[in-house]
Design a protein around this nucleic acid. Structure first.
Lengths: 225, 225
DNA sequence: ACATGCGGTTAACAGCGCATTAACAGCATT
DNA sequence: AATGCTGTTAATGCGCTGTTAACCGCATGT
């Protein structure tokens, strides 16, 4: 799911360019020409980050930020200031902006700033680590494998290996790839070690006969559900 | 308790001025002339934030940041770059810097950036001072743990550790994360120290058998209720 | 200056978990 | 049939964990 960005800018040419670049970066950008429209949108949808120009018709950027903060005290806000004016910066940051960028700015710099906040948030929020595999529910973060109200605990290695197999569910994963991703390197003994773990995983997965780990001779394994 | 800032800068005049301003702001600034000295200090003491010049003798700012990240993946790092060099910025931010500032910078701007991070951290830890955990009621601010009209007093460290476990109730928290959040950094002895505290917490929590701190071998702990 | 108490750290040891290794049986491919 | 690959179980041993107790620094009180 792409991160949704609220972008408020009245200069149409700049907005078009920025919107384009951010979209190419993989963000879902919603652009508004004035603060009132932006605020209305913010109240209806959820945004992961806001980029707001300070100089705006109808409602200026600071007022908009204040209104946004009333609804949401967490969402990161980045201000775009027309000139380098120290007082404005301070005012904006006190309102609860998290950063600002001065026109003219390079699009790379803006992307960097956006990434900083979205990366940080990603660390804080609980990543979706639960995958469904047949009748099982596997929680990678908590290393649990559940089926029919029964919950098993896996070890770290078991979990990592299962995770790798699930990522390529119904596809073959080569021994080499598994070894590198789970153990970091490959040699003969680690290979045998992995076989032991495959064996244990199979035992863990017996409760749903539709879920199987099959061996592809000389190549690797395939988890199918 | 004043926030402690690690400041690495080889230009003595600039360092003196900055140090002075930050001290007046109420920060406890420790200044080092080179990366090696700074790293040594970082490993010995706890810092709430780092301000690092990129151009340094002996060990450059990026290398220093990398080393710091090995010990502590959480502490905010602000880079000071001599020129506006895009590649360097990107490199620095990928290493795990949280922001950067370009020379020459106004001291107000630096203070603003510092405040953003320290304020943010503050916001995260102060909300929700009373939490319910099983039959217990834990008041983080007052460091009290109550059950059935019986009230126990916890120590500061016990409280912080319990708080971190409660925040991720029913989820695994890694040893690394606990160490960084409660002790500010990680090493072998602090790890053992933490085990002692886990042991003490378990003793405090015996009155409700449904509340347990379980160990996830080689990973961390999980408080379940 | 000397006790006292408190809280956090370090030391020491017991115990256990789990990845690895070994060993052997069975299977696939040639 | 021969060879290499895989499945499984069991043994081994390292490293992680639980716990008690001693220790140390610091603040407070006498």
């Amino acid at each position: 799911m792409a991160d949704q960005i609220l972008y408020v800018e009245d200069d149409e040419t700049l907005a078009f360019l920025t919107n384009d670049s951010l979209s190419q970066e993989g963000y879902n950008v919603k652009h508004y020409m004035d603060g009132a429209a932006a605020l209305k949108a913010f109240k209806k949808e959820t945004f992961d980050l806001c980029v707001i120009d300070v100089m705006l018709p109808i409602m200026d950027g600071f007022s908009l930020a204040t209104k946004i903060r009333e609804v949401n005290s967490q969402v990161p806000i980045i201000f775009v200031t027309a000139k380098s004016m120290k007082e404005d910066k301070i005012l904006g940051l006190q309102i609860g902006a998290d950063d600002y960028i001065t026109k003219p700015f390079s699009i790379e710099e803006l992307i960097l700033k956006i990434n900083i906040f979205l990366k940080r948030r990603f660390v804080n929020t609980t990543e979706n680590t639960v995958s469904q595999i047949g009748k099982f529910e596997f929680d990678f973060k908590n290393l649990t494998l559940s089926i029919d109200e029964e919950k098993k605990r896996l070890t770290q290695r078991e979990g990592e290996l299962l995770q790798q197999l699930i990522i390529k569910k119904n596809d073959i994963v080569s021994r080499k790839e598994l070894l590198e991703r789970v153990w970091g390197k490959e040699d003969y003994f680690l290979g045998r070690s992995m076989d032991v773990f495959i064996s244990r995983l199979r035992k863990h997965l017996t409760n749903d006969p539709n879920v199987t780990i099959e061996n592809i001779h000389g190549v690797g394994f395939r988890l199918s559900a």
